[in-house]
Design a protein around this nucleic acid. Sequence first.
DNA 1: CTAACGATTCGCT
DNA 2: GCGAATCGTTAGT
Length: 207
Amino acid sequence: MTMITEIKNTQILPREFYIRDDVTLIARDLLGKIILTYIEGVYTGGIITETEAYAGNNDRACHANNGKRTARTEVMYARGGVAYVYLCYGLHSMLNVVTNEEGKADAVLIRAIKPLWGLACIRKRRISQKKENLLCSGPGALAQALGIDKKMNGLPFAGPQIFIAEKWCTGGKSYLAVKPDKVIVSQRIGVAYAGEDALLPWRFIVG
DNA sequence: CTAACGATTCGCT
DNA sequence: GCGAATCGTTAGT
């Protein structure tokens, strides 16, 4: 009964949010935003707490560096606001937010969230993880917690399967994205192969 | 076709 | 701290 009201009050991030040229700015701005998936009738999600920026040009850590086009990277060239999901080490799905206009292959890797919605379901998906604070920390863990895999590659963050929002209404309550008052900046994880580009301060954590 | 490896995680020492 | 798990993607033969 309250469903219609809830949907109406929810504020999905507008497409313009993603269509900006500075991917590091977007990576920062994503901190504190609300992210959820809707799978088999269950919403799971939380607040974004850690991101990394990857730039299509002049960033050797980026899969689509300097125009590299393969079947896997193709979605990175799409218009911003859709998901880039790929499998890492044969077992972990990585969730990225594609940004910038069509043809510019920037993306933001979501590395961690603070889980708030669908905790029972999240714990079920993360059955092997006993520590509550590690449920959604790390890109592979986070994707597993939210039920994200390659099937979600290319889906828009405007829903209905995956959402990023400024405001989310559920259970008669509304939640606003929180602007972190402190952001810790550091080098990106696991990109040593990128040479000098591995040193770029493009990892952002809510402090 | 083949081989090497990765934007990682977890359990064990 | 170390190493196994595990397979799609990629580049090279």
